[in-house]
Nucleic acid binder design. Structure first.
Length: 635
RNA sequence: GCUGAUGUGGCUCAAUGGCAGAGCAGUUCACUCGUAAUGAACAGGUUGUCAGUUCGAUUCUGACCAUCAGCUCCA
């Protein structure tokens, strides 16, 4: 007999009892919902036998690991369905992902959108068949024989062969796949499924390899959960910044300049308001501001290393027979500014900001609204410092990030990106700088994940991925630690000891790119910006033409207080004007009719709250001035 | 860049190998109205571009351009 600790309760079982059987003993509900087990902290398959005293937790769809097992099983069901519908299919891989799963196939012929419906129907059939999944192990050579007509599986087996362990397989009826698991017990445990999209994807994610067909899907234990998920996708579609950007008149893109956004008057108000805010914050944190040229000669880019490591993304031209590069980053210009005069240790840390317009030739297929463009404004800054100021400067920078992001109600996750293959500097320098970054962030009580090999070519970086209200994440801020450029540009400061020393520096952006940030907050707020950001803050709506004069007086008062106001003097009914102001997501509407002119009042309507009733203009101002000045978020 | 899809007035979308249509938006006129669409009239298109097939192409074919879903890449 063995003792199993189930959520603090000790239970006795025969040795060899499986995780699934333990779940069954607790109750059918948990047995049916079980996706995997957590045995002494390790995720295991439901078929795993228990042979010693242990602590066990039954994982369901509500646990992240249980969800993975659920989706992974659904991906096997999809593979089985595709195998049945398209004989001769070669199977690649089919993992669970953040939202659902995919499976990559090498198909005899390309599949179309109609096939997606057929695959989904076949999957439902397999679910109905309720076939058990069984698990078995084979040594590598036998595994290869079992998968002899599957070239991609052969490659995967070869990779595992070196580890000297047997290969784990799962089988469900007419479909077998090598897989470490864990998996559900039968195909019938999966309830609601949906094939979400079809696309191409390279084998092993390498553009040199063959492109396979990737089929994405998602599944849930209840139809209602699937419906909810699909409704969430609809909501995300409505919030798409490309759609809202058009509807709200913020920006446009033209065929004549792919990836080069045009800002329209309302978008320009938004952009300038963000930049005003940025300047206010950075001034408070002791930053200076500079501006460096967009075009600089090739010799500079060679010195900075960009010519060697970033040329494929740079636009170039020739002026008076001299080759020039359009800046893809602001740093080299910043280096020249630092070098233009001698510096003392007393000036350090020296914080130099630049709202720099950079151009990068991104691949055409990667362009995406304002999220991925070929020309954007970085809210860049370089902080030059001594080595022993590094930690303080990083802390101060993270505090600045915290302040800015919380102003927008955005939360974030930190990623540490380490040395890429294509880099400058020694391994020792990289490791030292990576440690400085990770220690600094840990000392602040913050956690981070590591993104191996994803640093900039000149140094490691902390990337700030901010998540919007739908839980999607976007990389915006980054702090990059750089000891290479100061070396290459021979930057110096005079120390207390009257000797020349080399400073270190960080590159950092908070918004990342103003363009991307505008896209992110547009989706985050669903276009209904907080009062301080709204391009039009108040719209004035006369009931009839005779009320226009009174609203013109009100307009003058509001504008005098610095508000952005529009008067809708068209000869339309009040309902029509309100509808339009609502659709433009205008925070406040001021309605004036006979009653208001007589009583000296205004009728206020807010975008979020509807009709707020009648008040004096002063009372209205008392409400909205602090709302704007404190940059309050919408409720 | 790669794989697949798409491209019709400002927007959303119809239709067809034989004169391209609707709603919204726009303009004009009437209405002067109290919290999400007043009515009428008018105007608006070389169907992404360039070739080809055809008596005739917006429709079929090809190339290119752009966009979309992903891959790769990235602020």
């Amino acid at each position: 007999m063995i003792q199993v600790n189930l959520k603090g309760t000790l239970r006795e079982f025969e040795s060899g009892v499986t995780v699934a059987e333990v779940a069954k003993s607790v109750g059918m509900g948990l047995y049916k919902a079980a996706c995997a087990g957590k045995l002494d902290g390790e995720v295991v398959d439901l078929r795993t036998p228990l042979t010693a005293d242990c602590t066990l937790e039954i994982l369901t769809f509500d646990d992240p690991e249980g969800k993975r097992a659920y989706w992974h099983t659904t991906s096997h069901i999809m593979a089985q369905a595709v195998g049945r519908l398209f004989p001769g299919t070669k199977f690649a891989i089919g993992p669970a992902i953040e939202n659902g799963f995919y499976y990559d196939f090498d198909l005899p012929a390309p599949i179309t959108q109609d096939d997606a419906a057929r695959i989904e129907a076949e999957m439902k059939k397999i679910i109905k068949e309720d076939t058990p999944l069984t698990r078995f192990l084979l040594p590598p050579d036998e595994a290869k024989r079992k998968m002899e007509d599957q070239p991609y599986k052969q490659e995967l087996i070869d990779e595992h062969a070196g580890e000297g362990e047997d290969i784990s397989f799962y089988e469900q009826g007419d479909f077998t796949d090598l897989c470490a698991g864990p998996h559900l017990l039968t195909t019938g445990c999966v309830k609601a499924v949906k094939v979400t999209s079809l696309t191409g994807a390279y084998w092993r994610g390498d553009a040199k390899n063959k492109m396979l067909q990737r089929v994405y899907g998602i599944s849930f234990p209840k139809q209602s959960q699937l419906d909810e998920y699909l409704a969430m996708l609809e909501e995300a579609k409505k919030r798409d910044h490309r759609r809202l950007g058009k509807e709200l008149g913020l920006f446009m893109l033209a065929d004549e300049g792919p990836g080069f956004p045009f800002f329209l008057p309302k978008g320009m108000v938004l952009k300038n308001t963000l930049l005003d805010y940025w300047r206010e914050v950075h001034k408070r944190y002791g930053y200076m501001e500079i501006s460096t040229p967009i075009l600089l000669n090739r010799e500079l880019w060679e010195r900075s290393g960009h010519w060697e490591h970033y040329k494929q993304n740079m636009y170039t031209t020739v002026i008076d027979d001299v080759p020039f590069g359009v800046k893809p980053m602001n740093c080299p210009g910043g280096m020249l500014v630092y070098k233009s005069e001698p510096h003392s240790y007393r000036e350090l840390p020296m914080r130099v900001g630049e709202l720099g317009l950079v151009h990068r030739h991104e691949l055409s297929g990667t362009l995406h609204g304002l999220f991925r463009v070929r020309c954007f404004t970085q809210d860049d800054a370089h902080v030059f410092m001594t080595k022993d100021q590094m930690e303080d400067v990083i802390h101060e920078t993270v505090r600045l990030f915290d302040e800015v992001y919380s102003t927008f109600g955005l939360s974030y996750e930190i990623e540490l990106s380490t040395m890429p293959e294509d880099h400058i500097g020694t391994l020792e320098e990289w490791e030292y700088n990576q440690k400085v970054l990770s220690d600094a962030i840990t000392a602040m009580g913050k956690t981070f994940t590591v993104n191996e090999g994803d640093g900039a070519f000149y140094g490691p970086k902390l990337d700030f991925h901010i998540s919007d209200c739908l839980g999607r994440t976007w990389q915006c801020g980054t702090i990059q630690l750089d000891s290479q450029l100061p070396e290459r540009f021979e930057l110096e400061y005079t120390g207390q000891d009257n000797q020349k020393h080399r400073p270190v520096m960080i590159h950092r952006v908070v918004f990342g790119s103003i363009e991307r940030f505008i896209g992110v907050i547009t989706e985050h707020f669903a276009g209904a910006f907080p009062l301080w950001l709204a391009p039009v803050q108040i719209r004035l709506l006369p009931i009839a033409d005779r009320h226009i004069a009174r609203l013109e007086e009100i307009k003058a008062v509001l504008e005098e207080k610095g508000f952005r106001v529009e008067l809708d003097d068209r000869g339309e009914k009040i309902g029509y004007k309100i509808r339009e102001a609502q659709m433009m997501k205008t925070p406040y509407m001021v309605v004036v009719g006979d009653r208001d002119v007589e009583n000296g009042t205004v009728a206020i309507r807010s975008y979020k709250g509807g009709d707020l009733g009648t008040m004096t203009l002063d009372a209205f101002l008392e409400k909205i001035v602090p709302e704007r000045d404190e940059r309050r978020l919408p409720e």
